[in-house]
Write a protein that binds this DNA or RNA. Structure first.
Lengths: 407, 407
DNA sequence: CCATTTTTTACGAGGCTTGGAAAAAGTCTC
DNA sequence: GAGACTTTTTCCAAGCCTCGTAAAAAATGG
């Protein structure tokens, strides 16, 4: 079998419609002329495609008053039509589930957070919980209720590479939990289950300041995880959710990690690692170290407590070495950092950069930009929403049932 | 600016021609019908495209006698036309340059190896040397001399990401050496300069047993390097030649590496590392450890010398941890191994697998296939040739100046 | 109120693939 | 050995895109 598939007029149509939608998501509003300029399509083609998408209800012509006064016929502003679809980004974490519903334009419509002890529960319970969450989210909307078109579930832990469920999660005792199929049956929408950290780069998919940029997202908190955006695509492993940055070995034979191995980055840099190192307690704590506890630790370090300072330093060192290893393999990348580690960046940054310097060839990447993103939940919701919308764009570009109804 | 470019009929044509060529390279010979089946094109389109490519001189109809006797009109066999182009794969290594010329079908026409002390020489000398090598190669051909169409230079060391030259190489004292432009002027063909290890996966580009497979190539010898094939593409860094596997840190604060850092994989697993560890000499040897010396070391280990055995074990351990780290980040991958390490695989394999087991989550990948490829030079030549041919296929598919002359 | 400028739409042309029909080139059977 | 059968290849009209140009539309400026 050939690796290269054929192309035909259908593909061209789909691809170009997608290009128009993608451009529109990046800039918010455009005109037919601007679409032509941005995509390289002729104005004729741009106009024709835009017209079709408007008739399909994916885009709409909007009034814009801030238009600068110029001569000539003013362009009709076009924008994504929010009513075209509704998506949900759900999140499963230790001790809580949360979610956000957004419209097709990406505008958040409602958000909900619910603390539940899910540790010992099975798949049915989780699916019920998520379905209830989605229903309650829908009830919060001012607008009329309507079915969801696409749901993304972000999970702490390892997920199946076919996006169907959870291999293993620190939030759950059970393993191998199917989520996508049963939840899809309950909600009537396609469901994709992904690792939260791998998903994070999606949040920047249409951010103009990140356009075409390769970068990594780094979560340091309860665990340690990474997401990669390379060559304009969010990296996804074939066999699992991949980029298990927290379990890249830092020190052969080193500190014990939750995963059973010794010397993982997580065993030095995660909340529990910093806590046990700072308190001199060698065991992995049975329960999650809360955000407040980490704040207190950070404050103690800032106050000068040498043991706590050393713990944060060791954490930064492990992260730095891990980044240095990634940079050596891939390339130096800008880092978007989130989680409790982002809140303690003042305690970590120096040793992170020192670690990169010691482990990367020529210390390359030790001066890489470190972008802080304190609100992890917002990041995950943004990412899940973007992922869902991108998937819908693809579907819509493919189907595009040439407007059944005309306004 | 939009990330997605437009598509049009031109793109379709180029893409489909490329699909036909790519299929043909994978199978050697086909028929128009088989092309249709493999690419998904209609038989009409397949026939039309094949006809064009034959008229352009890229493909030719060949007589095949081993055809199985079936009813119906027999298909006309098609094959890549070797005369359509001529490419060279050159190699710069410590103390020698070598090269191979092949025709458009990938058939090797001539090979040449030349020992030269290039260590202290500058760019002009290197370019002269390569140009002479290419000229001498051309003179060895039975067929009439003709210009090269594409040249690939594989280099030990780091190369510019625009493929224009050498940032740094262990074979050369000088740094930042421009190769592509001056050599191109001399040879009249486009020249691309790449890192030898990064290039290696290209050797399997059209191998049916590797079709669509993700895998890594691992060179263990004078240095330690890796090539990655992910999602059907050979991984290339943006900033450099990338995947510096040998310089992924293995042990913080560990053994001194040539790169100046401490604890790199190379500082444990390369020839010089094994040598200094086995001999108890702490310094990095000034000169390259020859293949014979490594053979003697390996034989000593096989004979039971404990210090030498320990050196090989430490090497395998470092490689295993390195692979475990890569597997944790990307995914477990089959490994194609070459270099002196492949020759000593009996001494390394156990500790490699042990290292993976200790460093990858759940030991995933410790049972990954290890494919040995003893002839490194052949691998590099294959890779360079495949790279060059793939580049030519792209050009030809684009231009395809609809046959000026007809048979 | 008309000329000017800019955006959008309309229309014919060109290119590529498609599907079916016709032609070509063998094997098989009587 | 001639005709029937089968399979591959070629030919041709049709369909879908996009493109370029021209015309229409919508606002400004004098």
């Amino acid at each position: 079998m050939s690796r290269l598939a054929k192309t035909d007029a259908d593909m061209v149509r789909v691809h170009n419609r997608l290009a128009v939608l993608d451009h529109l998501r990046g800039v918010g509003t455009t005109t037919r002329k601007a679409v032509s300029a941005a995509t390289g399509l002729s104005v004729s083609a741009s106009s024709a495609i835009s017209g079709t998408l408007v008739r399909c209800g994916l885009m709409e012509e909007v009034e814009e008053d801030d238009r600068s006064i110029r001569r000539g016929r003013p362009g009709k502003s076009l924008a994504i039509c929010g009513r075209a679809a509704r998506v949900a980004a759900l999140k499963i974490a230790v001790g809580e589930v949360s979610g956000r519903i957004s419209d097709y334009s990406g505008r958040p419509l409602a958000e909900l957070r619910r603390g539940v002890d899910i540790s010992g529960r099975d798949g049915d319970f989780i699916v019920d919980l998520l379905a209830d969450l989605a229903r309650d989210l829908a009830q919060r909307l001012e607008e009329e209720p309507r079915a969801l078109d696409k749901v993304v579930v972000a999970v702490q832990g390892k997920t199946f590479s076919d996006l169907s469920g959870i291999v293993w999660s620190p939030a759950l005792k059970h393993r191998h939990i199917e989520i996508a199929a049963p939840l899809s049956a309950r909600l009537g929408a396609e469901v994709s289950v992904l690792n939260d950290c791998s998903l994070m780069p999606e949040a920047f998919r249409w951010r103009p300041d990140f356009a075409g940029l390769d970068f990594a997202t780094l979560f340091v908190g309860f665990g340690v995880g990474m997401g990669l955006r390379l060559n304009g695509a969010t990296f996804q492993g074939k066999h699992s959710s991949a980029v298990e940055f927290g379990h890249i070995n830092h020190m052969p034979g080193g500190a014990l990690c939750r995963c059973g191995n010794r010397g993982c980055v997580e065993a030095y840099a995660s909340d529990y690692a910093i806590w046990r190192s700072a308190t001199g307690n060698g065991d992995i704590p049975a329960h999650r170290i809360g955000d407040e506890a980490m704040q207190r630790l950070a404050d103690a370090a800032r106050a000068g407590d040498p043991a706590v300072r050393a713990a944060f330093e060791a954490a930064g060192n492990a992260i730095g070495y891990g980044l240095g290893r990634v940079f050596t393999m891939i390339d130096p990348l800008p880092i978007v950092m989130t989680g409790s580690g982002a809140q303690a960046i003042d305690l970590l940054e120096a040793s992170i950069r020192q670690g990169i310097r010691e482990s990367a060839v020529d210390g390359l990447g030790s001066d890489t930009p470190l972008i802080l993103q304190e609100d992890t939940d917002a990041l995950v919701f943004d990412a899940g929403t973007a992922y869902a919308l991108a998937a819908l764009d693809q579907e819509f570009a493919r189907s595009a049932a040439e407007a059944t109804e005309a306004a």
